[in-house]
Design a protein around this nucleic acid. Structure first.
Lengths: 253, 253
DNA sequence: AACAATGGTGTATAAAGTACACAATTGTAA
DNA sequence: TTACAATTGTGTACTTTATACACCATTGTT
């Protein structure tokens, strides 16, 4: 929790630089060891957590704002971002207002405003991220999708909406380039799909379908060294992948 | 075009009642005589047209704002609305700013601000709508989808995005309840789909697919009186329709 | 050498999508 | 009255896609 003075200083700064009433919240997905991860912040002196978020500078395109905000949290630039919804309930963000309402007048508290929040989801390379807390938080870290803590404000809703959108996208767009390492095996990619969809897929049918999309290149050499049969390594054909992103697939899972 | 005084008065009013920096633009689709229609406004002294739009009151949920704005333009209440994107380019709405920049100082011109616009599309009953121009416009009327005039600002982009979204929704959601009269024939419904998708569909396969969704009731009596064979009349089963809206279909066209 | 675990490939079957044919009804023209 | 065009209802063969399941190959372990 900020001191009264810190809050007022932050507020003055924000009033100068940021658009009123607009915030951005991001659901950052990563994938590691067969687990879907979400980047979360733990505010100081709070039980519940928050999605990484921020504000839009007065002359900044919103997509650029989302990128800037996530670069601060992850160290990554040029993140794959997808705007998915705007959350505009008048009471969605009374939290910071209530927190300080007795000590700081609303005029001086940037957070006392009503905020509409633009929801972005991001797909990022787990290993590329160096989580970095912001000034309100004591912790910024990955959390497993099936071990999510409670979230403040309406961030549960934002998260859930992002996940639903991602699942829908899976039906008509390729997913994975931003989440997988450069080279990966078919079972690894399948695990990603299974994690996002939260259900088992048939190994053989998955392989046929994915290969049918025609966006993968198979490496000459299989991966050696592990136990069991050596699996082939695949990588995304970026040209065809980008094309599939724009054109879209048919059908559903 | 407003006079200087009108603009200043409007601006004072708006500053009091509306959220800064946020606007709403709506793409209202109707269907009549086998043609897809969009509700457009023709501003005074302008060649190009605009989508109906407005602002969000300080304590008003955004969905309610969209509803209020459209009620003013159409006379309809409880409109089927779908938020589909937020348009946030910093330069997207410099139009009204430029128009008055020499006569009204930015401080007094509500339109001189930067606006992020929330895009909603609406599906409405063509006959239920009584188009009503706003104070900036000389005309509010339906335009054919294939006879669209030029649009101001980024409204071409907003319109196009809405149409793309609608086409996508067609793949996994029922469409039609809000666009068709209570009773309609299968060829009439097919025409709606063909118009939205802008392509011919096979009559027999369309019928099978639509009936397969299980959201239609067939009336006892076919429609009499027309030339040619009397077609059956169908209506949507609202319960099943609503359920399909939530649950969604599979596959694509 | 047998075995468990994993991965690659194939095949039979079911479901869905596509293409097309034919019969029924109704108004119009000959 | 009859032939015809236009429109609608229904069926059927074919193709493509989805699903379920079987078999073999490779590698480390026992």
């Amino acid at each position: 929790m900020l001191t009264k003075e810190q809050l007022i200083e932050y507020s003055e700064d924000a009033r100068k630089n940021y658009l009123d009433h607009i915030s951005i919240d991001c659901v950052v997905f990563g994938f590691h060891e067969g687990q879907m991860k979400v980047l979360l912040l733990k505010p100081q002196d709070e039980e519940k957590w928050l999605l990484p978020g921020g504000f839009v500078m007065k002359a900044e395109p919103i997509e650029m704002a989302a990128n800037r905000i996530l670069e601060e949290r992850t160290g990554l630039d040029k993140i794959f971002l997808q705007q998915f919804h705007i959350f505009g309930d008048p009471d969605r963000a009374k939290f910071h207002h209530d927190l300080y309402k007795d000590t700081v007048p609303d005029q001086q508290n940037w957070f006392a405003k009503r905020f509409l929040s633009i929801g972005y989801y991001a797909l990022v390379d787990f290993f590329g991220v160096v989580p970095q807390a912001d000034q309100f938080s004591e912790l910024c870290t990955w959390r497993d999708l099936d071990d999510m803590p409670g979230l403040l404000l309406d961030h549960e809703l934002i998260f859930k909406t992002a996940l639903d959108t991602l699942r829908l996208q899976l039906n008509y767009q390729p997913i994975g380039y931003n989440l997988m390492p450069r080279e990966f095996t078919m079972p690894e990619l399948q695990k990603l799909y299974e994690t996002i969809l939260d259900k088992k897929l048939d190994r053989r049918n998955f392989q046929r379908r994915i290969l049918g999309f025609g966006i993968l290149n198979r490496a000459e050499q299989p991966r050696k060294g592990g136990a069991h049969k050596a699996p082939y390594l695949y990588s995304f054909d970026l040209d065809k992948y980008q094309n599939a992103l724009t054109e879209g697939f048919k059908g559903g899972w």
